[in-house]
Amino acid sequence: MSAGISRRIYERFIYSLLAISALVVVAPVILIVYFLISRGGAGMTWEFFTSPPRNHMTEGGVFPAIVGTLYLMTGTLVFSVPVGILAAIYLTEYAKQGPFVRAVRLAIVNLAGVPSIVFGLFGLGLFVLALKFGASILAGSLTLALLVLPVIITASEEALLAVPESFRQASLALGATKWQTIQRVVLPNAVPGMITGIILGVSRAAGETAPILFTVAAYYLPSLPRSIFDQAMVLPYHLYVLVTQVPDAPPHIQWGTALTLLIIVLGMNLVATVIRLRFRRARKW
């Protein structure tokens, strides 16, 4: 009997430890969000979002950095989404077992694991220098597109695999070709899942700093970029500059910039989650 009691106490103890470790993970997240909101919230004025930094970044706002981030996100989207979706279509609809597919899958896994700074080096070597795009929105978008490619491929593949095989069979049995089947039956039913993955991928791109250090990010620009061959100010790099290079930057500008970035990134994650949940509830298969 007493053995049972001591065992129960022991298990209680273990379970408390497990709960504490969960708390250790959760608490900092709450603290981070709390700090950002309490310290950055004050700086969040309309003027902060709509005006450029002034007086050596000690005044003004983050408007050009927001614009630059939006440009980069758009560029990343344009370059990564078509390739990512087609690659996923290849893997789910066309690929047959063999060394080529295995190599493709291995490449995707490894691409996902390449450190972001190595993407930066590669972007510098290929896009900025070899292809002579210079440090530009084009070079930065291409670099980020490669970085998020695995995310988009994996999510799209999952979405395609979730489309029941019976839809494909029905279409093929009606005399549709493979591509007609993909175009008219498979893709429309996979789109919501793909959108979720795409938003997650692009939000990741929006928060990355290391890959854009040498490929696009500018310390300060007096005017907005006019073409894809221009450099741009970008939020994460702007935060880096504010924190490490501008000793007298007022905290509300630093925290406000960090909060702006977090809102963009987590906001997109939230949108992705909502889409996923709504789609799951709505679909009937």
Partner: peptide, 25 residues
């Protein structure tokens, strides 16, 4: 259902923001 999204949020915080918090807090 609270824990899992929180872990996802942690994964989603940009490294520059985590670095900033690490630096000042």
């Amino acid at each position: 259902e609270i824990l899992k999204p929180t872990v996802e949020i942690l994964a989603g915080i940009p490294s520059i923001v985590i670095g900033f918090i690490g630096l000042v807090i």
